[in-house]
Write a protein that binds this DNA or RNA. Sequence first.
DNA 1: TGAATATATGAACAAGTAATCATATATACT
DNA 2: AGTATATATGATTACTTGTTCATATATTCA
Lengths: 119, 119
Amino acid sequence: MQEEFICQENCPHLAKIHEVEVNKIPREELQSLSEIFKLFSDETRLRIICNLLNTELCVCDLCELLNLNQSAVSHQLQLLRGSKLVKYRKEGKQVFYSLKDEHIENIIKIALAHMREEK
Amino acid sequence: MQEEFICQENCPHLAKIHEVEVNKIPREELQSLSEIFKLFSDETRLRIICNLLNTELCVCDLCELLNLNQSAVSHQLQLLRGSKLVKYRKEGKQVFYSLKDEHIENIIKIALAHMREEK
DNA sequence: TGAATATATGAACAAGTAATCATATATACT
DNA sequence: AGTATATATGATTACTTGTTCATATATTCA
């Protein structure tokens, strides 16, 4: 995994490294964080999430909107469910999905603003 | 890719679908967005980014901090460079990397806040 | 110029993952 | 009970991706 490689010249910018170490975000938090971003990183899932931004939708609605088959949509919903990003309610044969909280919306919006500003 | 599957009963919640369609975020934007999230979705890259939050660091510093070999770090830096998330400056043999703008910091912070609130 | 150092990069491999197909489950209706 | 519908899920496959190894490039210094 690692190798004994320490840049000899100036590299141990030891002070700087120490400073960074001090302000360090705990490793487990970064791991959880990367998992959230991983869920946002697939276009299909992102489309699902964005379609759910203002309303709840059943699986079939999502299939329509995404123009994707039911199995693919259900598999992605399973992932979103597993990470507690969406909640669902059953109504007869149908299952309606919605976003679990507004944080998600915030993250999307800010990332979107970032992206649009870039241009 | 797709299949002719339209839920017959109530599914065409046509009004709802139409509403969602109207507020739709353009497909290309979602694609760019997912690419940004993809960069954040790998733990190594996320660690690099977080280490750069308040300072610039050379490749070797990052190797130290991440406890990872130089090649792995350089490959990830290449991706971050490619997506304009980081900038760099050369100083002799060394290359110092830093974040390109503060949007990145915002996205991380908000996602972090979201995550911490969850508990 | 030659050696050493810091970083970049190509190729290869292993691990992960999204879509698809087939099938299972659950609910409603006759 | 039997059929049809809506959704879930396991298995497979094609594809992507992060790491490693080997090597290339660039810079400094003797």
